[in-house]
Design a protein around this nucleic acid. Structure first.
Lengths: 371, 371
DNA sequence: ATGCCAAAAGACACCGGTGTCTTTTGGCAT
DNA sequence: ATGCCAAAAGACACCGGTGTCTTTTGGCAT
């Protein structure tokens, strides 16, 4: 009798197949009821086996497990989600041009999710669009993910975070600063990292140091600028305003900023570009002007984008511990119980990666630069 | 009476909230039954309104829609999926170090998915792992996505594709060649693009041209090598074996290949690196050896990775129409009806982007290189 | 043999939607 | 007034799981 059920199912499946394009048709799904019939137990007992509830007779457990394995049964995720009132979905929401960062975070989140039963949904948005927050809201309400991870810079947006609170969606902000309103945060101490940059340059003997800051409104931009200038000040170096250029974290803005900075007199002997894209812009301008890095100009970037090590000379930069950040961002969202409801902050330290774009300032450089 | 139901619900919601951490608790979900009560119609009628079934009285339709809007009701995706026997999930599966390509495809797929009701799941895998295919199988069986998009090089794996057929999962292969076994394919004519590269170099007057090929087993590698050598042959140029180097699409392998190629005598006047990472390796070696690009050596890459335009001089390369490829990959999976069951092939043409890394060969270069 | 009780298993309702079949509604010809 | 019929709406089962409460099982003390 049990066998007949399976046969009937197989037949139906065949019929469906032949009606359509054959091999490409999805086979009839095996359900918990089929397993229950085959094992001659109730579906509830199968459910217990699936969820590893201990109050199941070992013999029955083994029998059910064997049938599950033999039939290749997988619980339907929709049904499971519906019954559990839980979506088993984590979403990563971003609006960020830095592909390396996105893919790195994505890989790390997937790694942290492995075996947890959760899956990763991605959602790209446009923070400059007037429909930015409503669009994300629509996404969150429609998908009802179990939690969302916000990448910078949208992770800093108070309106977005407020909306997530309103719709009751757990979230974690990955940012360069403690975003107070966010439920959970992973914060990288960009400020400390930039102090390290200042230290490195002053120890090499640089006195006239320029910085290309990030776009206004980005917390990472203010943190990096602040960390750098404060550290210089602690060492008795004041940053003259003409050596502070405004950038947009883009290659082109790096070029413009570099052109501006290298035309002041006396020119800086070192430039700290607050991301690698802008540092690449500095390289470009230096090449055009015939300025040799690091002999005539030291350059430091931020991110350890692949570009950094491809440039010539390889760029000294700051590396974010992306896999760690990804793990820290994921954990509070999938931790069991109500632990995930407690606010938490995880701090993470970026590291200086010294390559070949920095050297002591050379006395001959002011001559050469005029050429 | 209708109002009482709502009030009761609100009360229950409040109670739940106060028991837990308050604001961070997810609010009680509004369901189709609530809407039905409020509108004094059956849930089936609400269902009809949601799904825009035309056989609904306009007055009722408007009334229901207004209540939906006012309450902010969203159909539960799990319930919807369960009832429709459809997951509304598309998965992008990849194992690829090229972050730009991944994020680009991802953005394009998300764009194509916008408004369709489908969402994007991402899954990274390791094609070298012995558990590669079983792992993907587990993923596909567990999530039961409506379709999957395979990025190269796993898009070429016949065992993987066979498995997807077995479990009945619709899929599209994005690759540099027509993968016969795949259900749908988006193929870029890398061969033609590389012929264009050959044309460009020969027209500049190069006769001694080297190539750094991609890793064995990658279809893109064989296609690019073939397209290039065939085109040279058509112009009467035979590629001597010592000018064909084996690379792995990595920066380091580009360095090694360049070292080898630049040590043969007479050295090549141009190197076609079959991706930008390897081209960056060529730049690195050229810098170390004091070889000037493009005066003494022309270099061409492939991908139009951001690196290409950041290098100095900016690298001439091939650009894949990634947004188009993403759209073409997405459409067959979400098209309605059984249209998506018909195999299809979409062809796409990459373009040569000429920048500043190529120039006519210079007679003085063989002198300089010996230095 | 009987009663008691904890462990194991099952019955049944439910999660929140859709499909299918039936019933209601109301305009029109007779 | 009555019958007919298409359009509109509803009843009910179902998708495939889990939660809760009840029933069954079987070992042990009496």
């Amino acid at each position: 009798m049990v066998k007949n059920i399976l046969k009937a199912k197989a037949k139906r499946s065949m019929k469906t197949k032949s009606k359509l394009t054959g091999s490409s048709m999805r086979a009839k799904q095996i359900t918990i009821n089929d397993i229950a019939h085959l094992a001659s137990v109730s579906k509830k007992t199968v459910s217990r086996v699936i969820n590893e509830i201990p109050t199941v007779n070992v013999e029955i457990r083994d029998r059910v497990n064997e049938i599950i394995k033999k039939t290749g049964f997988r619980p339907n995720p929709q049904a499971r989600g519906l019954a559990f009132r839980k979506s088993f979905l984590i979403a990563m929401i971003y609006d960020n041009p830095n592909a390396t960062f996105i893919v790195g975070m994505q890989a790390g989140i997937l790694e942290a999710l492995r075996g947890s039963g959760f899956e990763l949904l991605v959602h790209q948005c446009e923070r400059r669009s007037p429909r930015f927050v409503p669009d994300v809201r629509e996404f969150v309400e429609r998908l009802q993910p179990h939690g969302v991870i916000l990448l910078p810079p949208i992770s800093e947006n108070p309106v977005l975070i407020q909306m997530l609170h309103e719709v009751g969606c757990p979230h974690v902000s990955v940012a360069a600063a403690r975003i107070e309103s966010a439920m959970h945060r992973v914060v990288s101490s960009d400020r400390d990292a930039c102090a390290e940059v200042a230290l490195h340059l002053t120890e090499l003997g640089h006195k006239r140091i320029a910085i290309i800051a990030g776009p206004q409104g980005h917390r990472s931009a203010t943190e990096r600028l602040r960390g750098f200038t404060d550290a210089l000040q602690n060492r008795g170096l004041l940053m003259p305003p003409e050596l502070i250029a405004q950038g947009l974290y883009t290659f082109e803005s790096g070029i413009q900023a570099a052109e501006k900075l290298l035309s002041v007199y006396p020119p800086p002997t070192a430039i700290f570009a607050t991301n690698d894209e802008m540092a690449a812009g500095v390289y470009q301008v230096a090449h055009r002007l015939g300025i040799e890095i690091p002999l005539q100009l030291s350059v430091i970037g931020y991110d350890d984008n692949p570009i950094a090590s491809r440039l010539w000379p390889p760029l000294t930069t700051i590396r974010l511990p992306i896999p760690l950040m990804a793990r820290l961002a994921t954990t509070p969202l999938i931790s069991s119980g109500n632990a995930h409801l407690q606010q938490d902050v995880a701090l993470v330290t970026p590291n200086l990666v010294v390559r070949h774009s920095t050297a002591p300032p050379s006395s001959k450089r002011s001559r050469n630069i005029r050429a």
